[in-house]
């Protein structure tokens, strides 16, 4: 009995070693598309992708402290560049896999008009943004408010989520009436699914460039390299676009 168990465990580990798995750290805002892409990736290449979703800054801290990630899909383009500079990522492998689109969104179907005039009226208690210090979508949201000249007026009404998912949570629960979140979070069949929203023109903020990079631990791993290549392919790009991101 004991021997049988030992044999089964050994066999399981051996099989595990044959099927190449890539450990990927994925920015929280890219959760939806990455779940779809990983299925296509596994079907097409036979490799497996093990996905961890979270904040890019936290991934940076983990990667520089020995986390077993082999590829990073960052929410910005600075973190991959920094990881390359510090030799935690492979030089020359960083590329923009998606350009984020910002949306002003409310769970209330009537609150937000097509031009975002609601911001100038300011008739609400709280407006949620992602922390501009740590989240690229938060930085973009702040730029939009500055450009529209409403930043000072809205400042006392601001509440910050630690990342874009938490910001959405504030708005979904109604604790904040509206907020700046990622288009990808509320998109359904190419448009805003529920509530009301305003897809913010790219002219109002710097582009939200999301870069992916092959990490040092994935340097010689076929599955990790295959994933990076797969993200550049047509199949992945179709998915990325369908979630409301733009491409380079």
């Amino acid at each position: 009995m004991k021997n049988a168990l030992f044999f089964a465990l050994t066999a399981a580990f051996a099989l595990n070693g044959l099927a190449d798995t890539v450990q990927v750290a994925v920015a929280a805002n890219f959760t939806g598309p990455m779940q779809v892409i990983s299925v296509l990736f596994e079907r097409d290449t036979g490799h497996k992708a093990s996905l961890s979703f979270g904040a890019t800054g936290k991934f940076y801290a983990q990667i520089t402290n020995g986390a077993p990630f082999e590829a990073l899909l960052s929410a910005d383009n600075e973190t991959p560049a920094r990881l390359i500079k510090e030799s935690h990522a492979v030089a020359g492998t960083a590329f923009t896999y998606a350009i984020g689109k910002l949306v002003l969104w409310s769970a209330d179907p009537k609150l937000i008009d097509a031009k975002g005039e609601v911001l100038k009226k300011g008739e609400f208690r709280h407006i949620a943004i992602a922390n501009p210090k740590t989240a690229p979508y938060g930085t973009a949201a702040r730029q939009v408010m500055n450009k529209l000249g409403v930043a000072d007026k809205l400042k006392p009404l601001l509440v910050q989520g630690e990342n874009i998912s938490q910001t959405q949570q504030f708005v979904v629960t109604g604790a904040a009436e509206l907020g700046f979140i990622a288009f990808s979070q509320v998109i359904k069949n190419g448009q805003i699914g529920t509530g009301s929203g305003w897809v913010i023109p790219g002219t109002l903020h710097d582009p939200i460039l999301q870069d992916a990079v092959l990490l040092a631990k994935g340097k010689d791993k076929p599955a990790a390299i295959a994933l990076i290549n797969f993200l550049k392919g047509e199949k992945a790009q179709t998915v990325i676009k369908s979630f409301g991101y733009e491409l380079h």
Binding site: G57, K58, A61, H126, L158, E162
Partner: peptide
């Protein structure tokens, strides 16, 4: 605090959240 605070200076931004922000911002 993270869930219900909203990270507002002098109102809900406590030390633990401030530390989290510093770590996130490297």
């Amino acid at each position: 605090v993270l869930m219900i605070g909203g990270n507002i200076p002098d109102k809900t931004r406590v030390v633990s959240v401030q530390i989290y922000d510093h770590v996130e911002a490297l």
